[in-house]
Design a protein around this nucleic acid. Structure first.
Lengths: 379, 379
DNA sequence: CGCGGGCTTCGAATCGATTCGAGGCATGGT
DNA sequence: ACCATGCCTCGAATCGATTCGAAGCCCGCG
């Protein structure tokens, strides 16, 4: 227990600035100046300090001391969904995070990963890191619901918060995209091609892990802003003939959705395509991963894209394994979104007033949408 | 600039433990005890402190002070490849990270994401975080090459290091898997099925982003341990008739590899299958993502799996979008690997001697490998 | 020769909490 | 009635660095 004085596992005593100063024959303050570069100092003095440091094996000021003094840790907590495994299976999240990390990095800030739900004790409402980790700001990006325990805990602690893709929070900058208008544009594209029976594959409405047909009553329970906006965007243009709620934005759920929306289960469990006269001719999915899954499902039903069914997504991901198809999708600037979040963090730390940023999206037409072909033969 | 005294952007002065103690009429040490729970304290005293804290809006001890005192930040730096976008496109990395975060979380440690290459200035050799962020240990997981600037910088700083899937480093615990034996087992499975012309799709040999036919001379230049072991594992059983080096473990590169290994480019740029008499009948890919891509490529050439070509991978990923195929693969315990890394970190902090952990893998046969069918007709 | 001005360097306070040994007070035993 | 024993609480040192105002020194100018 005599370990408190600086003995480390390796047995190395870590020298301090004071020791360096002593050896160099200068005061601690001067030694500090030699390292920080702030303030006037003679080249010789600096050299002397640096030499002493080298001799002692001192490799620079201990960040902990600096942090205490400055009152800042240089760390930004980023709250990711329940499990990383899940959150990061979605390239959308990864790309946003990438933009965020890189923008914060340019400002000398690091990203601390924080599970939205504690990894150790499922009974606790929030991860211990949320309660006690040092961070200058926290970023909540995915699925900030109406009553978010993590958000509440952070606010109680007084940690400034930045919200991405969620509801407005008092005093917190918000970064979002044109979900509604983008979705509407995609649907208008479908309608413009002559599609009248449009089916929808929806993002999760909340954290309930529910999936299945999405009925009107359920629509009132949406608790995620992007989902709400995309649902609204669809309905701005057309009332979908059918809608399917998924439990996560993943390929397999898009596939199941498509099978359910366009097929009927046979006695052997396999799905067969519904009657061409009544089945939907187009699918609008709230995300590209869902759309990709839907496309696989459509192919599995023996239907052709886009001759029998058109499929459109949202995100603008690069999905080379869908080749030779290229998804029609609403391109959102993912890295920019991360960068905008990063700028919001930096602004907050600089004392700027929190502002709302809305990024724009753009419809990119691929090969998966086309005009209705009523009589097209099925291969 | 009078901001140093505690004024925040919001204008909130943050109370300190001293203020709380003063208001509660106790000493600072007693107040500390009330929060930390260590040491004996009368319930009434604690209550009084807690009340005072509440009145002042004090939400618990400042982590920065605690960290300085304890000499520990509770932060573990995890060095991920150049860009997150790239590193995390591979589910393998994500799952390992998930296991790591969760094990560290159970021990009160947080994960700081560190780009392996600086995000701001390509000229610098390492990210500023590597040089100056507070961390108790650093974990290097992917692609620790022979001369790694990041590793060197961390060692210079005296930050203890844990290595995952890389070369042995003096004083650093190492966590790896049975790459060689696992790969060999997969190849034995293929050979056991009667395959004689086995082609290989290799992981990157180094950070060079090279791709193309892998010739003997190049083999000598391998600078990544897992790749080296998997290459060796293949050759323990059979000399591949052809080998293809990829630039990253991604689906699209697996596809290109398969097209190159099994096809020939036609005049229009499209690939056609090579002559059945001489083309490889099996593909061993160093990763499941590569294998999945290869499978797509094989399908694209109009060949059937496994009748015309068998495909085996490595990792044991769940790839539902390959349906109805299920990849034959070598299952490695990804979350366990993360957990093992986490335990290595905790052990290091506890002063234990660094040890090497090797996790075991298991061949899981799916639907993508089968016996050679010389005369099988091509659909 | 004396004094003012400009640089560098120094001292000491400060950031916020933890921790250890000492001291105080009350209780119980003899 | 006195002393020993415990249980709480308190003071003060400590972690490692930054920073600001003051002090020292040297030089040049009057």
């Amino acid at each position: 227990m005599s370990d408190t004085t600086g003995t480390r596992a390796g047995g190395t005593h870590r020298p301090t600035l004071a020791k360096v100063a002593e050896r160099a024959g200068v005061s601690v303050s001067t030694a500090s100046l030699a390292f920080s570069g702030a303030g006037p100092i003679t080249p010789e003095t600096r050299e002397r300090v640096l030499t002493a440091a080298e001799e002692l094996g001192y490799t620079g000021p201990n960040p902990l001391g600096r942090q205490l003094r400055s009152g800042r840790s240089g760390v930004v907590g980023v709250v990711v969904g329940d499990q990383l495994r899940r959150a990061f299976r979605d390239p959308v999240a990864v790309q946003v995070l990438d933009g965020l990390v890189s923008t914060l990095g340019e400002n000398g800030l690091g990203v601390l990963l924080i599970p939205g739900i504690p990894s150790d004790d499922p009974a606790r409402a929030v991860d211990p890191l949320v309660e006690s980790a040092a961070m200058d700001v926290a970023v909540l990006v995915w699925g900030v619901g109406s009553d978010d325990a993590t958000l509440a805990a952070l606010q109680r602690r007084g940690v400034p918060v930045v919200i991405g893709e969620g509801r407005e929070v008092e005093g917190a900058p918000l970064v979002g995209i044109d979900d509604r208008e983008g979705t509407a544009e995609a649907v208008r594209h479908l309608v413009g091609l002559g599609h009248e029976r449009v089916a929808e594959v929806s993002l999760p409405l909340d954290n309930s892990d529910r999936s299945g047909p999405l009925v009107a009553a359920r629509l009132a329970q949406v608790d995620r802003t992007p989902t709400a906006n995309r649902l609204a965007g669809v309905r701005d243009v057309v009332e979908p003939v059918a809608s399917w709620e998924t439990e996560a934005s993943l390929v397999e759920h898009g596939r199941s959705a498509a099978l359910a929306l366009l097929g009927t289960p046979g006695p052997d469990g396999a799905f067969r395509a519904q009657d061409a006269a009544t089945r939907p001719t187009a699918i609008i999915a709230h995300s590209d991963l869902l759309a990709a899954g839907a496309l696989l499902g459509v192919r599995e039903l023996g239907l052709r894209v886009p001759d029998d069914v058109s499929v459109a997504g949202f995100d603008g991901l690069d999905l080379p394994w869908l080749a030779p198809d290229v998804l029609t999708s609403v391109l959102q600037p993912l890295a920019d979104k991360g960068a905008a979040l990063g700028r919001a963090v930096v602004g907050l730390l600089a004392g700027e007033e929190p502002a709302t940023t809305t990024l724009h999206v753009e419809l990119v037409v691929g090969t998966t949408t086309g005009p209705v072909r009523p009589g097209a033969p099925v291969a």
